[in-house]
Each structure stands twice: as structure tokens, then as C-alpha cells.
């Protein structure tokens, strides 16, 4: 099917195959359609149908509350039945050369292990390698659970053959319940990606500041891996703030210690505990890491005061944490193009 998108600035054309979600079809065709969650909740990918016929695969998607008229729909949930013309209210550009154009891939779950009582480390082996940028995420669909979920990659390699994720158990969350309760190893999954704009590349030449809450740390670990592979912290500072409730909820502390030992004292990792003071054992077990008490944005704000020169900040976590962090960074006069996050959770 031929699809024409009339955006605010210009028209784009792409092809969509039978059953392919319009958002995914457009992105695969290097058309930079608007999206955030890619999974029917945020409403960012809404569009208006001008002509042609489409079918909504998830008429109860929560993101539909952002739609106004009967002719509006979510591109991440709808497929085309015929050639179609649609309209998007925002500016849409063709993806720049060098950006990893997303694609639909197959894979299987190759390992799943518990990191804490409610956090799983999951690995998906892909049927073909994927290029992605540090900080990006993919949409994953597992059999028997409707819809795609967005998960950030933890690892970073060129031509990655497997992807690693951190998944927090959400009570009543379809996919996380399934992962925690079943023997998921070996199960075939569908993957679409990479997605997300909050990416890091060594040519950035800025100090980096990572502020993450809970499983939001995943993308930060990918960014740190890429930076470490490039000896980035020989020249630039890295400040990482990882927020959890108690020390029992923290994970990757050995990995952070190892990175700190490898990269030297330009890299600083601080674990912010919101519900307890750091136990003395933490300080002796992890001498390379810092610990502090408070919400991660407050802790980061205190430690970073006066240190915002030439800084690019990456944020990830629950929306209230991201909003609070943005407020602190704007007050610190960090320019908006140096505040990077994807609101997909």
C-alpha cells in the first residue's frame, strides 16, 4: 500500500505491507514520524485520515483519549487496508544519514535472570544483527500478550547479535507478569527498532550527566559502555546518578565499580537511595561508588551545582522524576538541546 503523509512542512511517501503498523512502516522508510511510546499510550503519533481505509488493531488503546474527531487515529496501532493519505500536525523530516533506520526483526529469549526481587535482566538473541545507538530502545512483542512494549538496550555493540534489557515487575503488567511467572527462555519474540532520540555518540565532545530512576538506568549503561569503549572519560567527565528506594533495589553495582576502575576518576557514579540512609556495608563493599540519601534529581542537583559547563544530560525513569529533573536542569541554565530523554515508559 502506498501511504502519503501530509505534515506541517511537506509531504512524505512510504509503503506499508499488509498488517504493518503505519508508524513502523513510515519509520522503516526513514520518514521521521512523531512518536514516543510506540505502544498506544502517549498519543504522540496521532494522525488524521484524509482518504483510504485503515483498521485499528487496538481500539481500546489508552492513547486514544488524545484523539478528537472520528477521523483521528494512532499510527502505532493502525494498519492500512488500501492506499491512504494521512495528515500529521507536526513537522516531519526525512531521517538524516547515519541515523539507524528501524526495522522489524525476529529473535528469541536467550536468558532471563533476576537481579533483585522485582527486576529481571533479559537477553534476546536476534536472527540478524542490529545497528543501534547507545541510549535507544526497541519495541518487543511476545506470544500471547497483546501489543508491543518499549525496552531500552543495556548493552552496546556494533552489529549487535543480541540485545539486553532491564525489566521491572509491574503488578498487573501483562508482559512483566509473564516474564516473571513463566519459563520464557527459548520463546520466539518480534522486535521493532531501534527507536529513540536520546542517543550518545563519542563525537559529542561534552561531559555527560546521566540521571536515572530504577530500570531507566538501562539506557545509561549502554551509553557508558559505548563511552568506555572509546576511552571517552580520559578527556570528558561522566556523572551518573542512579536512583532506587533502598540498597536492596539497586543492581549493576559491580558493573559500575568495574567501569569506574576502567575509566578512572573522571567517571563518578552516585547511588541515590530515597527510602534509607546508605548502610555502612555499601561504602565498604563498593569503594569506587558514592552513596547519598534523597530523590535522585535532588541528589544530582546538589552534587552537580556549579558543574554544568559543557554538559549533555541524559534522563530516564518514571515521568514525575524526569519532569523534576528537567526543572532542576533548566534552573541550572542547561540549554534544552543538551537535555535528552525519551518519554516512552
Amino acid at each position: 500500500m502506498k501511504i502519503q503523509v501530509n505534515a506541517r512542512n511537506r509531504a512524505h511517501h512510504f509503503n506499508a505491507t499488509e498488517g504493518e503498523k503505519l508508524l513502523y512502516a513510515g519509520l522503516s522508510g526513514a520518514v521521521g514520524l512523531p512518536y514516543e511510546c510506540g505502544s498506544g499510550t502517549c498519543g504522540t503519533c496521532k494522525a488524521r485520515l484524509i482518504s483510504g481505509e485503515i483498521v485499528d488493531a487496538w481500539p481500546d488503546a489508552p492513547g486514544r483519549k488524545y484523539l478528537k474527531g472520528d477521523d483521528e487515529f494512532l499510527m502505532c496501532q493502525c494498519v492500512a487496508k488500501t492506499d491512504a493519505s494521512i495528515e500529521v500536525a507536526s513537522f516531519v523530516q526525512t531521517m538524516e544519514a547515519g541515523v539507524c533506520v528501524p526495522a522489524a526483526l525476529k529473535g528469541h529469549i536467550s536468558s532471563a535472570k533476576l537481579l533483585t526481587s522485582d527486576v529481571i535482566h533479559l537477553q534476546i538473541k536476534l536472527s540478524q544483527p542490529m545497528e543501534f545507538d547507545a541510549g535507544q530502545f526497541v519495541m518487543v512483542q511476545v506470544p500471547g500478550v497483546a501489543g508491543f512494549r518499549g525496552w531500552s538496550m543495556v548493552n552496546y555493540q556494533r552489529e549487535a547479535e543480541s540485545l539486553e534489557f532491564i525489566i521491572k515487575k509491574k503488578p498487573g503488567g501483562g508482559i512483566s507478569e509473564w516474564l516473571f511467572n513463566s519459563q520464557c527462555t527459548g520463546v520466539e519474540v518480534e522486535v521493532f527498532g531501534p527507536l529513540g532520540h536520546a542517543t550518545f555518540y563519542p563525537g559529542l565532545s561534552k561531559n555527560i550527566l546521566c540521571i536515572a530512576g530504577g530500570s531507566g538506568i538501562a539506557g545509561m549503561v549502554s551509553i557508558l559502555s559505548r563511552a568506555a569503549q572509546d576511552d571517552y572519560f580520559r578527556q570528558y567527565r561522566g556523572d551518573v546518578f542512579f536512583g532506587v528506594q533502598t540498597l536492596k533495589d539497586a543492581f549493576f553495582l559491580d558493573e559500575f565499580s568495574r567501569l569506574r576502575a576502567q575509566c578512572g576518576d573522571k567517571l563518578n557514579v552516585t547511588i541515590a537511595l530515597s527510602k534509607e540512609d546508605p548502610p555502612a556495608s555499601a561504602l565498604s563493599d563498593y569503594p569506587h561508588l558514592k552513596f547519598d540519601t534523597g530523590y535522585v534529581h535532588d541528589v544530582a542537583g546538589r552534587h552537580m551545582q556549579g558543574n554544568y559547563e559543557n554538559v549533555r544530560a541524559y534522563l530516564a525513569g518514571p515521568p514525575p522524576m524526569v519532569d523534576a529533573t528537567v526543572r532542576i536542569l533548566l534552573q541550572a541554565r542547561l540549554a534544552t538541546d543538551n537535555i535528552c530523554y525519551d518519554k516512552f515508559s
Binding site: N6, R8, R10, A11, S85, E87, A89
Partner: peptide, 8 residues
């Protein structure tokens, strides 16, 4: 094949 867009 027109190049189209919508004005506001």
C-alpha cells in the same frame, strides 16, 4: 503526484 501539506 502532488506534494501536499496542511496550513494552520
Amino acid at each position: 503526484s502532488p506534494a501536499g501539506f496542511v496550513l494552520h
